[in-house]
Amino acid sequence: MGNIRVGNKTIGDDQPCYIVAEIGINHNGDIGLAKRLISVAVAAGCDAVKFQKRTVEVVYTSEELAKPRENPFGPTNGDLKYGLEFGQEEYEEIDAFCKSLKMAWFASPWDEGSVDFLEKFGVPVHKIASASLTDDNLLRHVRGTGKPVILSTGMSTYAEIDHAVEVLGKEDLVLMHATSTYPANYDELNLRAIPTMAERYGVPVGYSGHETGIPTSVCAAALGACCVERHITIDRASWGSDQAASLEPNGISRLVRDIRLWEQSKGDGVKRVYEREVPIIKKLRRVGAGV
Results as ranks from 00 to 15, higher is better:
residue 1 M to I: 15
residue 1 M to W: 05
residue 2 G to K: 05
residue 2 G to C: 10
residue 4 I to A: 12
residue 5 R to E: 07
residue 8 N to I: 08
residue 8 N to M: 04
residue 22 E to P: 15
residue 23 I to G: 00
residue 29 G to N: 07
residue 37 L to Y: 01
residue 38 I to R: 02
residue 47 D to I: 07
residue 47 D to W: 02
residue 51 F to H: 01
residue 51 F to C: 07
residue 54 R to E: 01
residue 58 V to Q: 02
residue 62 S to G: 14
residue 71 N to M: 10
residue 72 P to H: 02
residue 73 F to T: 11
residue 80 L to Q: 09
residue 81 K to W: 04
residue 83 G to W: 00
residue 91 Y to F: 15
residue 92 E to H: 02
residue 93 E to T: 05
residue 97 F to C: 08
residue 102 K to W: 02
residue 107 A to F: 04
residue 115 V to H: 06
residue 121 F to C: 10
residue 122 G to W: 04
residue 126 H to V: 14
residue 129 A to S: 14
residue 136 D to K: 02
residue 140 R to Y: 00
residue 142 V to L: 07
residue 148 P to R: 00
residue 155 M to I: 14
residue 156 S to R: 01
residue 157 T to V: 12
residue 167 V to G: 03
residue 167 V to K: 01
residue 173 L to E: 09
residue 183 P to I: 00
residue 184 A to S: 15
residue 189 L to S: 03
residue 194 I to C: 08
residue 196 T to K: 03
residue 209 G to W: 02
residue 210 H to W: 05
residue 212 T to S: 14
residue 215 P to I: 14
residue 216 T to Q: 09
residue 218 V to Q: 11
residue 220 A to T: 10
residue 220 A to S: 13
residue 225 A to V: 14
residue 231 H to T: 11
residue 231 H to C: 10
residue 235 D to I: 06
residue 240 G to L: 04
residue 241 S to Y: 02
residue 244 A to H: 08
residue 251 G to H: 05
residue 254 R to Q: 15
residue 256 V to R: 08
residue 257 R to H: 11
residue 279 P to Q: 00
residue 281 I to Q: 06
residue 287 V to C: 08
residue 289 A to G: 09
